[in-house]
Design a binder for these strands. Structure first.
Lengths: 120, 120
DNA sequence: CTCCTTAGTTACAATTTTGTACCTATGTTT
DNA sequence: AAACATAGGTACAAAATTGTAACTAAGGAG
């Protein structure tokens, strides 16, 4: 909280401060496709803990990127979605996704090669 | 080091693992414009320490994103540049830059407003 | 009356990232 | 002979991030 222009040396640094960290980008990626409940996000993100998911969502909410809708039900139901402002991040997330896909394909190929070499 | 496909739940997570952190994106941003010497990068990146700059460059080099060219001179001269593979990151860096610029303008406006309100 | 559900919160611990301060190499300049 | 320049390396400390485990709320089901 309490971000300040003078904290940043350039715009890339500022942008990475907002979507950086281990999970915020991943949350945004899943929210690009529409509303998601808390538990749904948890299932979509293997490895995330409830705590980290909560923290990530709260920070994105504070920035005005994510909208949090609480339904007065028991058991509770909470839906998260991108705000209009949040949707301006779409180009970043899509370019991350595209590049990441190719990167993972490369990783996979080199793992397969290492395995084949080991089997002599 | 020793990245593994199974470490990642999705492609965005993988991409952020490569360019995430406080400085790697900023280095890439400056290298988009061409070769840069170590000291030059340091001057372009207020706040970075020699240590963090070295670490960031080393990681990017290991991934094959950045090329390191050492000139046999005294005092030493080392030039860093993007590899062809590194240039595939351009869409990510440009979208981060564009978004970051608008974000910083928003921050600046709200700081000015806060100041004006205080002056009553 | 107890358990189940979802969406959390909290205290604490471990891990990762980042920073500080000092050390190195060596040809050139003063 | 001492100082300067650049591009580091290294040990250690501090700070930030992330993880673990236990606890909570409140209505409905059995």
């Amino acid at each position: 909280m309490g971000k300040c222009v003078s904290d940043y040396g350039c715009s890339v640094e500022a942008a990475l401060d907002v979507i950086g960290g281990k999970w915020k980008g991943v949350v945004l990626y899943h929210l690009l496709e529409g509303k998601r409940r808390f538990g749904e996000l948890q299932r979509l993100m293997p490895g995330v803990t409830r705590r980290m998911l909560t923290l990530s969502l709260r920070e994105l909410e504070e920035e005005g990127i994510v909208h949090r809708e609480v339904y007065k039900q028991v058991p509770p139901k909470v839906e998260y979605s991108l705000t209009e402002y949040g949707r301006t991040l779409e180009p970043i997330i899509l370019s991350l996704r595209t590049w990441g896909e190719i990167y993972m394909q490369k990783l996979k190929r080199s793992e397969e090669n290492a395995l084949a070499a080991q089997a002599k």
